[in-house]
Amino acid sequence: MGISTGMDQEKLRQISAKISDGTASEEEIAWYHRYCVAAEQAAMASGTNIPDDEDTRAEMYRQIRRRIDRKKTGLSVKYRYAAAAALTGILAATVFLYRPATHKDQPAAVAAVSQNIPAGGNKAVLTLANGKEIMLSDAGAGDIVKQAGLRIYKTATGEIVYEATATGNASDTGINRIATPRGGQYSVVLQDGSKVWLNAASTLSYPVNFSAGERRVTLQGEAYFEVAKNADRAFKVITATQTVEVLGTHFNVDAYSDNALVRTTLLEGSVKVVTAPGTQLMLKPGEQARLNNQTGALQKSNVSEEDVIAWKNGYFIFNDTWLSDVLLQLSRWYDVQVDLSTVPRIRYSGTIPRRKTLQEVLAMLEFTGNRHFEIVNRTIIVK
């Protein structure tokens, strides 16, 4: 497929507009993806000579910004992610089409960004009640261990599942722990059927078997919960500064220690957020509780549910997000550091697949924010 004709450029704009408003056909979406893949491959290939048309680049930039900054699209959740991925594709294609990197014309500082740091993946350590550690990325599918009336196994898709067996001591409530490193994520199905997705640099501690009175887990970092309904046993998520109490619901808790706020977002059902001093808030779907780690103030607001759980679905979604917060998210997923002393007070909006390399992500941020990024000794520095 050619990538430099005016006809293709016009068709690209037309189809990206249709993807954005939800009217694109399957054939148009397929053409769009083939175009972007071909454009990126051609631009990155050695010796590619693609014209740098400032007027076309500016027009495409305006089109991209107008669409990715739109807060509500009216699309279904699934289609919104498809549209977001497509719009990110045009952003990436624009970077490579109109700013091709060559050894001849790029300064040394840009070469630092070209360090190919890959995206994170499914990595975690499972620590059993007896202290035994299991590297889950190294474990094959099938049984991992049996303990306390439970079979713990890994599925073919890499998920850890706790399943009750007919034998064993189901009253054993010894604590297990699953921890993801920086650059890792993992999901686990607990003994009661509740499912938890852990983001990077997060730890979940939980009983092998929940007690008769309640289901209590402890979280450091960020996790998305789909709690199995049980009216007789409340499910509680304990963090350093608050407790989230539910019976059966879907919600996300972002409790990283280096964040200024602890954010609890409800997607389905109802939850009660209780702070250490005893302040309480009830949430409805679409609401987020924000606990200030310094002042202890607890407030709630309406948020985009899809944006909050984008990480679970394979995306970064930035919606008027401070650059410092953007870089903190990147640092956890790509296992790098950030020099926050150089970060300006600017905001970003846009969507980026988490499968992209750090090089590709920073190139997108440079293009959309008119800032330069360097990577020095695995530390992101903003110029």
Rank of each mutant, 00 (worst) to 15 (best):
T127C: 10
T249R: 04
S349C: 13
N313M: 05
D21P: 00
Y348Q: 09
T157A: 09
N292P: 06
L97Q: 14
A92L: 15
A139F: 07
Q329K: 12
L128T: 11
Y79W: 08
N199D: 07
K356G: 00
L362E: 12
V77K: 09
V37G: 01
S46N: 10
A170S: 10
N292W: 01
I238G: 00
L281Q: 09
F318C: 04
A82L: 14
R80G: 06
L340Q: 07
V227E: 00
R34L: 12
K383G: 09
T357Y: 01
I317F: 04
Q106F: 03
L358D: 00
V376K: 13
M60V: 12
Y348W: 12
V161R: 02
K312T: 10
A92K: 15
I178N: 00
L328S: 12
N230T: 03
Y256G: 06
G140I: 00
C36A: 12
N169M: 11
A201C: 04
L340D: 05
R378E: 01
D143T: 11
G286M: 06
P118T: 13
H372A: 01
T88E: 13
P207I: 10
V253A: 03
V308W: 08
V227A: 00
D105T: 13
G193F: 06
K78R: 15
G142E: 11
S4E: 08
T88S: 10
I152S: 03
P207A: 11
K146M: 12
R67D: 14
V125C: 04
A109M: 14
N313K: 07
R66N: 14
D254I: 01
V382F: 01
A200V: 00
G168S: 10
V227K: 02
L261V: 07
E40A: 04
I381L: 07
S46G: 07
T73G: 11
G158K: 05
K72N: 13
E305Y: 01
K383D: 06
E54P: 00
Q115K: 15
S76Y: 03
D138M: 08
L150K: 07
F373E: 03
V376A: 06
K78Y: 08
M364V: 02
I19H: 02
G314V: 02
T295S: 15
Y79N: 08
A234P: 05
L266I: 00
G89I: 02
D320Y: 03
Y153M: 09
R34D: 05
I134C: 07
K356V: 00
D254N: 14
V37N: 01
L362F: 08
S341Q: 11
A108D: 05
Q9H: 15
V196N: 06
L150S: 05
D172P: 14
S205V: 01
A109S: 15
Y61Q: 08
L340T: 11
I178C: 04
F96S: 10
V217K: 02
G47D: 01
A83C: 13
V113M: 11
L327R: 10
E133K: 15
D258R: 11
N116L: 14
T342K: 15
T73A: 05
I352A: 11
V336T: 08
R34N: 09
Q115M: 12
F96R: 09
